[in-house]
Amino acid sequence: MDKTIKNIGTLKGKVLLFGGVYSNLQALEQLKHMAEQHGIPPENCICTGDIVGYCAQPEETVQLFKLWGAQSIAGNVELQLQEGAEDCGCDFKKGSRCDTFSQQWYPFAQSKLSQDSLNFMKTLPDHIQFRYAGKKATVVHGSSENISEFIFKSTPWEVKAPNFIAMKSDVIIAGHCGLPFHDQHEDLLWLNPGVIGMPANDGTPQVWCAIMEETKNGLIFEHISFDYHYQLTSKLMQNGLLPEEYARTIITGIWDNTEILPPVESGLQGFGITV
């Protein structure tokens, strides 16, 4: 199937980047407030996908996202939901803890979403492209070819490089892996702003986004962590239908397991994020 690419032209002013809202309404509310404080218009707020996920308010989260008017590509979760698939498509290893947990949160999300929200997901493109600070940027979920590919800071540049060629881009903005990082090679930049729906396995309940800005010296960016009403998010998840382990992670900032992580990232669990 051909990929759908939405070209949103040349952006001016600050650009807010984020991913993995994961049905976390409280985090999305705080992010929207932050954007307004920074004077960033909705069209300059871009999500790398997975608006729906592990938390307790999928319908409310999608509806707020629509009301806000921010931009987003489809994550693997949106693709699976709009197609009525039986699993989240996260490419978890069969029988793993993540796979087991997905058999709880994914059916929960399916049961809560309205037809209006599902119709909204069908409008989301596979990629977004734009020009900024003289560079061409492409937003992908996992990678340009595989929506469910996990790419991390420690992933070899040789794995990242073909994405720039395939998308004819100078900047790749990606999501899916759940951790904020950037990797620069000469004039090419791989930027993952992180996710706002779950902590980054760093031992704090804070979540992550990034802001890009155009200066006289070109493109600059900053990774930003922020607090939100995570106690409420965790409490709402303790409904007997969602994994208790994920509700605990919202508070502790520690993932239940590191089975999707390469050795480098796994070894950094609880030590904070260095970006």
Rank of each mutant, 00 (worst) to 15 (best):
L241T: 02
C98Q: 14
V275D: 12
P199Q: 05
C90K: 10
I211E: 08
R248V: 04
A70C: 13
E245Q: 14
T204Y: 06
S111M: 04
Q104L: 15
K94Q: 08
I251E: 08
L67Q: 10
A210R: 06
I5R: 11
G197E: 07
G142K: 05
T233P: 02
P199A: 03
V52L: 05
D170M: 03
G13V: 11
S154G: 10
S143N: 07
T258W: 12
N24I: 01
C98L: 15
M121V: 06
L113G: 02
I260L: 11
S266K: 09
C90V: 05
M34W: 09
V275I: 01
F120I: 10
G218I: 09
I151S: 08
S148V: 02
K12L: 09
S96L: 10
I147N: 12
E86K: 08
L79R: 15
S225E: 07
G142M: 14
Y22L: 04
E36D: 07
L16A: 13
Q71S: 04
T123A: 01
C47G: 06
L118N: 05
W157M: 07
W68A: 01
Y22I: 02
D183Y: 08
V171T: 07
C45T: 14
Q26N: 06
F101Q: 07
N44V: 09
S102T: 06
D187C: 00
T48C: 14
G9L: 10
Q115L: 00
P205Y: 15
E245T: 12
M34K: 03
Q30M: 07
L28P: 00
Y246F: 15
Y54D: 06
A210E: 11
S114T: 14
G49Y: 10
